[in-house]
């Protein structure tokens, strides 16, 4: 199963932010999207999730075209986003956040089992389950944001800067879980400032500059690329 994004164009008013990008994300693989601030990475994710209207372009998931459909329909189809800045519901408890992740399956009796499952992935959330999400630390909020998305049983997970502002130890913990999720068959699109790590784990990676994909290839190969090394790896 794969998500194909073709020739995505997005504008804010008169400014074109995405000038026709095409991506392919496969189940069970990590795909990375690397680029500087303002290159259009988050815009691309919001467009894929159906939050921003497409000016041009198309999306295809599992052989079916997803065109001009609502965000809830995209989530229902199995493409789920963990947005930049975590955006947990601060005034709701950890448990309620997880319940809302499974909003589309709210009458399903398996929701409880899934909550137990994400608690084994992130044991700290189990301890915090009755706390308001706003009282969690940054790392815990990131864990909650990922756990909340997992509650929707994603086939493709879109992750926007999951390591942003977190201590290295916490980042390591979160990335371990991501690798586990991937090994269970979920496809991951990883948008990361931490380009080195992203390229190391990505089977395929794209480099985006001012709204265009300028380079793509296996992550290991891009790590060797001179242009990538000087622009994103600080070498």
């Amino acid at each position: 199963m794969r998500l194909k994004v073709k020739n995505l164009h997005i504008s804010y008013g008169k400014i074109e932010v995405l000038k026709g990008i095409s991506l392919e994300i496969s189940q069970g693989k990590i795909t990375a999207l690397v680029g500087a601030n303002g290159a259009g990475k988050s815009t691309a994710l919001m467009a894929i999730s159906g939050i921003l209207p497409l000016k041009e372009g198309s999306m295809e998931f599992d052989g079916k075209t997803l065109e001009r459909i609502r965000p809830d329909e995209i989530t229902a189809s199995g493409v789920v986003q963990v947005p930049e800045g975590r955006r947990v519901f601060r005034r709701l408890t950890v448990f309620e956040n997880l319940q809302l992740g499974a909003f589309l399956r709210r009458n399903d009796h398996t929701v409880k089992e899934d909550i137990e499952r994400v608690f084994t992935l992130f044991p700290i959330l189990s301890k915090r389950k009755s706390q308001e999400a706003g009282t969690l630390s940054g790392g815990e909020q990131q864990m909650l944001a990922i756990a909340r998305a997992l509650m929707a049983r994603p086939k493709i997970l879109l992750l926007d800067e999951p390591s942003l502002g977190l201590a290295p130890l916490v980042v390591e913990k979160i990335f371990d879980v991501l690798l586990k999720i991937q090994s269970e068959g979920v496809g991951i699109l990883l948008v990361e400032q931490n380009a080195r790590w992203a390229l190391e784990v990505a089977s395929w990676a794209y480099v985006i500059e001012t709204g265009r994909i300028v380079l793509e290839g296996p992550g290991s190969q891009l790590l060797m690329n001179d242009r990538v090394r000087s622009a994103y790896l600080g070498e």
Binding site: M46, S49, G50, I51, P71, D72, T75, A76, V80, Q81, P83, R87, V88, F89, R90, R91, L92, E96, Q99, L100, G101, F103, L104, R148, A152
Partner: peptide
Amino acid sequence: KALRAASEDMTAARLMG
């Protein structure tokens, strides 16, 4: 709960379906 979530962060609520 969805109502409280949407009043706090509409975009995040949309992403939850």
